[in-house]
Nucleic acid binder design. Structure first.
Lengths: 127, 127, 127, 127
DNA sequence: GTGGTCTAGACCACT
DNA sequence: GTGGTCTAGACCACA
């Protein structure tokens, strides 16, 4: 499914969250698809089930999946999600920090603006 | 000098690093300027001196400042700062993911574009 | 008959219990009416028969239905239903807490009042 | 601080969440007050630290507290919270279920309406 | 089988 | 000291 980087500073459960979000955003996992069960993914990644569960719960908080106890965890329909202002604010904060870092790295305002516009024109994998 | 946001998920020492880098990049602190001593800044921000210490060490590692024992900590020449092309790529990838998530959250292309431009303007005078 | 919401945090068997209670209270199912058999309802809702079984057992425990082996499950007389003053008090306490939280979340008294009235109207024809 | 009911169907961490919310909503814990540390509360309630942490994290998700690693967990300022539409929806769903249950318990529409109005007139403990 | 909770105990980074 | 993560392994309710 994907690989973990145990050496990374990013915690395991966060890496799992990021990877699964990536799969959903890229369309590899579609709406209503079932995610691997906690125990399955636990074995696949050789990671403790509690850690997987923590990742799944975080994905649920962020609105990417929903859970039916006894059945499994599934990808949410985008239409079910109300525009989650709180989450939008969090993501914008992420971008704010990234832009700051680009400035630190020595990129000019113009160059950053160019790069962002390129990203905006891309229309990746969204159904 | 600047404000810390205790509620932020970003650790305090990292916020200090970021803020001082910004002050340097913005020209508020010039090459060879002396930074406040660890104890001074510790009092100014009401933060544990160890935390300031850690921030200064990180700034030194990144080439933004240098320390002379017994004299203090000073802003390095710009040529000493590390530039990291690889890091630029990673940060761009972060932003790409965030933009995808904004689309996923239901924001229109136009709205995303607006929000990004707001972010860019926020410190537009810096470049 | 009715719809289940798999995404709800409420377990499936509980949703079935609630829905059937509503049908009884609304008079759609009258005293001595026969409920669908476990197998029938299982097919109608595409739900595991064990889950239906559990819902029927709970309804029986609460005095809403009774079961005759070999014949089926039937709606009880209203007098058989348990009334629980203590429970009423607990539920009111839950609502009190929720209203406090709405205030805490920044909603005005007027807005809360509006929202409550909407809720009350939702199934106003039932009493 | 408060008592747990180990016999309750409600899980321990949820009881902790509910109790602390109650203390905050009632004004016993004020804005910027420090909650007991994870380890302290763990000892006070003779409950595993992980369980306390789970409760604190849930409180954070719901916007009641914020956390500074290395410092502690603190009550959020109401003004810092944007009106959290998602959370409002969740609370309204709680009330919806409670009203349904009151109907199940045999209360008439009019009686429920009366009771709700009484609750609305109360202005408890909010700063 | 599924997810959910809990304990015991370890290790880490930050203050 | 603080919170945060992770493992190992147990037990429960629900489908």
């Amino acid at each position: 499914m994907f690989q973990l980087d145990l050496k990374s500073r990013t915690s395991i459960y966060e890496q799992i969250v990021d990877n699964i979000k990536e799969l959903i955003l890229a369309g590899v996992l579609s709406v209503e698809d079932k995610l691997p069960s906690v125990r399955e993914l636990s074995k696949m990644l050789t990671v403790n089930p509690n850690t997987i569960q923590k990742a799944y719960r975080e994905l649920e908080y962020q609105g990417f999946v929903y859970t039916v106890a006894g059945l499994g965890t599934f990808v949410s329909a985008a239409s079910d999600r109300k525009v989650d202002e709180k989450r939008v604010g969090e993501v914008m904060e992420d971008i704010r920090r990234s832009i700051r870092e680009l400035r630190f790295l020595g990129l000019s305002q113009e160059r950053i603006s160019e790069l962002l516009n390129e990203l905006l024109e891309e229309r990746g994998g969204l159904a």
